Amino acid sequence: MRTSECVVDLGALRHNLHRVRTLRPKASIMAMVKANAYGHGLIPAASALADADALGVAFMEEALQLRAAGIVTPIALLEGVFSPAEMQLAAEHRFHIVIHQEQQLRWLLSANVASLKIWVKVNTGMNRLGFRPEDLLKVWTALKGAPQVGQLGLMTHLACADEMGDGRTQLQLDCFARCQAEVQLQPRVEETSLANSAAILGWPQAQGDWVRPGLMLYGTSPLPAQTAASLGLRPVMSLRAAVMAVQDVKADETVGYGCLWTAHQDQRVALVNFGYGDGYPRTADASTPIAIAGRRYRLAGRVSMDMLAVDIGQDEVALGAPVELWGNNIAADEVASAAATLAYELFCKVTARVPRRYLP
């Protein structure tokens, strides 16, 4: 049997949630479990995050999966609803609904529903979803006192919170403050939410009543200048495989498709039973770290669909030796950097043919 697996440490996930609680003790936590909990498994992750105040999903299908699995934690639909029928369905399940455009507002105000928790999203500069600031007062006024609305909140999303020297985050915070003042938001009655993982860690002035941690829950740093370990976070996903062959190569011989890697001496390469068909990034370059039996090595050549090669120099490596592609010894952030991507994408792209194993 092929020995590869994706090990998810639910204890580490709970630890990281507690870390958020420690950092922002006065804020309610909306834990992000969208996109299959960033590839970690929607139901196991949501179950482990039972102490969160709410769970954040992108759309209705994810929320219904949670309810079908018996998850009772409040759930917020971050993209809102996509039809009047979904508005009714959201009301039946008491989902928290984000309203970010005029059509959703009309659906809500014409629906036969009552006392829903509604988040109004304002576009403070990211220019994806949200009402423009100059339109917010009209929207807020329409919702205040409407029978469909039980509790009203104001949220936004920060575009550059991971870049500490970028002045655009402060511009967004200033815009959000003006929006709060314009709608005369009532503290402790009408709530606010601004902070993603990067803002939780790097922008204390951006906390609001609710924080929305995502990446940091899964044990990865959202701040390029700081490691997850330095932030008190534990990796949740470990991607493991094994050495299936060891090849002797002569000086000046190449390895893999495209002949991109050349041996500078007579040496060995180890072949590992994991490739882009399993979700390992094909864009990973020769600086990408890989651990074999606890020792760090580097990728050799282009990642194939079912395997990859590792430069082990003159070392002796046994067949079947354990390989960690990322996890406790190799940070996912390191692999992401070498592959010109983000840890978010690495986690989400681990494919279904890799067995998942959950640690309690």
Rank of each mutant, 00 (worst) to 15 (best):
residue 186 Q to L: 08
residue 241 A to P: 06
residue 340 A to Q: 13
residue 238 S to P: 08
residue 81 V to W: 02
residue 58 A to I: 14
residue 358 Y to I: 04
residue 186 Q to D: 11
residue 56 G to E: 02
residue 202 G to E: 13
residue 78 L to D: 00
residue 261 W to A: 01
residue 70 G to F: 13
residue 185 L to E: 04
residue 360 P to D: 10
residue 178 R to I: 02
residue 139 V to I: 14
residue 14 R to F: 01
residue 97 I to N: 00
residue 57 V to Q: 01
residue 144 K to Y: 15
residue 63 A to S: 01
residue 88 Q to C: 07
residue 257 Y to G: 05
residue 86 E to I: 02
residue 293 A to I: 07
residue 242 A to P: 06
residue 219 G to C: 07
residue 6 C to M: 05
residue 61 E to I: 00
residue 98 V to I: 11
residue 56 G to L: 04
residue 230 S to R: 04
residue 336 A to Q: 02
residue 298 R to W: 04
residue 320 G to Q: 09
residue 258 G to L: 14
residue 253 E to V: 07
residue 174 D to P: 08
residue 330 I to W: 13
residue 93 H to G: 02
residue 59 F to H: 12
residue 54 A to Q: 12
residue 154 L to M: 08
residue 112 N to M: 03
residue 348 C to V: 00
residue 233 L to Q: 10
residue 249 V to G: 01
residue 324 E to H: 05
residue 225 A to L: 13
residue 212 R to E: 07
residue 334 E to Q: 15
residue 100 H to T: 00
residue 234 R to N: 07
residue 101 Q to H: 15
residue 73 T to V: 15
residue 19 R to C: 05
residue 324 E to Y: 15
residue 65 Q to R: 01
residue 152 L to E: 09
residue 133 P to H: 06
residue 285 D to V: 13
residue 23 L to G: 11
residue 198 A to N: 06
residue 113 V to A: 11
residue 280 Y to Q: 01
residue 188 R to C: 05
residue 69 A to G: 11
residue 310 V to P: 13
residue 337 S to C: 08
residue 152 L to C: 05
residue 253 E to L: 02
residue 280 Y to N: 12
residue 101 Q to D: 14
residue 309 A to H: 11
residue 237 M to E: 04
residue 6 C to V: 01
residue 114 A to M: 05
residue 157 H to I: 11
residue 304 S to E: 12
residue 14 R to Q: 14
residue 49 L to P: 07
residue 29 I to G: 11
residue 312 I to Y: 11
residue 37 A to Q: 00
residue 223 L to Y: 11
residue 92 E to T: 10
residue 111 A to S: 14
residue 135 D to S: 06
residue 59 F to A: 05
residue 87 M to S: 10
residue 137 L to F: 06
residue 225 A to V: 07
residue 97 I to M: 10
residue 18 H to F: 09
residue 207 Q to V: 14
residue 236 V to R: 00
